[in-house]
Amino acid sequence: MNTNLTVNGRPHALDLDTRVTLLDALRDQLKLTGSKKGCDHGQCGACTVLVNGQRINACLSLAVMHDGDEITTVEGLSSDGRSPLQAAFVRHDGMQCGYCTPGQLCSATAVLDEIARGWPSHVSADLEGPVELTREELAERMSGNICRCSCYPGISKAILSVAEDGTVHREAAE
């Protein structure tokens, strides 16, 4: 089935079996192997990508349903692999094996946007008040991304550092 996807700003016309998930289309057809297949059932978050700016599990979505959508994978977060979040993950040791990292990065990118839009979470004391990104808020909002190496302290520090000062100096990654 003919499907048009714009991935990281580039248009692609694909002919897909209806069963192909968005994750498999990205990895197998477009060779964008940054997005990872962990559980393939929406439980681990390694496949997280942004679709029209919102984070989703690419493994639980059919590629043919995304005709015309704009998709951002980890490869598209920056041109040089050093977006503020990427640099902060390096600086704060936000990974060990790195398998979950692309999903963590895409998810965290969306979390910062959701906070900016004032979306509350399960642990927000006040549904209507401004959201402050505490460690507890972050743990709740990132609960759809699992790290089997358990690098959560580093992941938290990295995301919080970006949330706090908006940008992280590029040198930090070096």
Binding site: G42, G45, T48, Q54, R55, I56, N57, L60, S61, S107, A110, V111, E114, R117, G118, W119, P120, S121, H122, S124, L127, E128, R141, M142, S143, G144
Partner: peptide, 29 residues
């Protein structure tokens, strides 16, 4: 639905229930 200002103000139990379910990625879909 969970983020809708009217739901948060007038039906907070609904926002709370939604936010207690699934993950951020799943709730977006």
């Amino acid at each position: 639905l969970a983020a809708d200002l009217r739901v948060r103000r007038d039906y907070p139990v609904l926002s709370r229930a939604l936010l207690a379910g699934a993950s951020g990625q799943l709730r977006n879909k």
